[in-house]
Structures are given as structure tokens and as C-alpha cells.
């Protein structure tokens, strides 16, 4: 899937995560999290796993995590990619 337009998903509420995607000529991922000291590696892993699952090879991805569980990160990533992408 290719990111064709700007899109966002999620919120900045506790236990949620806010994801922005926009078209870009290469893949750029920025992650910040309120629990980055403890879980940055796991969040990073999940974000890249979802990008791979959807075949996203380029785009600017900005992630602002408010302590979301893995299943929430996956859901918000998928929503943002579907909203901004096309096959």
C-alpha cells in the first residue's frame, strides 16, 4: 500500500496513540511515547511490523503514543494507513 494523502488516526488520550501519515519519497518514522524509557523498542517493533504487513515502503509516519497497548497501536496504524493509502 502506498501513502497517497495526509491522514491521521487515534487520539492523545491516555491508553491511545495518535498516528499521522503523509506521502514522502522515502520511509521516515518518528516515534515519541510517554513510556519510551520502558517500551520504545516494543513500540518501534510493532509500528514497523504493521508497515511491513501493509507493504508501506515510503511515507512520513509520526507516532505519538500515550501508553497504548500493542493491539491499540496496531489498530491505529492500520486505520491511518488505510485512510491515507491506496493499493
Amino acid at each position: 500500500m502506498e501513502i497517497r494523502k495526509n491522514a491521521a488516526a487515534g487520539t492523545l488520550e491516555s491508553s491511545d496513540i495518535f498516528i499521522c501519515v503523509e506521502p514522502y519519497d522515502q520511509l521516515s518514522v518518528q516515534i515519541q511515547s510517554v513510556v519510551q524509557e520502558q517500551y520504545m523498542e516494543a513500540i518501534h517493533h510493532t509500528v514497523f511490523q504493521v508497515l511491513e504487513e501493509f507493504g508501506v515502503k515510503s511515507g512520513k509516519i509520526r507516532v505519538n503514543d500515550r501508553g497504548a497497548l500493542d493491539c491499540v497501536i496496531r489498530a491505529r496504524m492500520e486505520t491511518a494507513i488505510r485512510r491515507g493509502g491506496s493499493r
Binding site: 488516526a9 487515534g10 493491539c71 491499540v72 496496531r74 489498530a75 491505529r76 486505520t79 488505510r82 485512510r83
Partner: peptide
């Protein structure tokens, strides 16, 4: 769309 994906993942 966001809600049904979130509920599905939950």
C-alpha cells in the same frame, strides 16, 4: 472505520 478496527483488535 477506526472503531471497528479497534474493536476487532481488542
Amino acid at each position: 472505520d477506526a472503531a471497528r478496527i479497534l474493536v476487532r483488535n481488542t
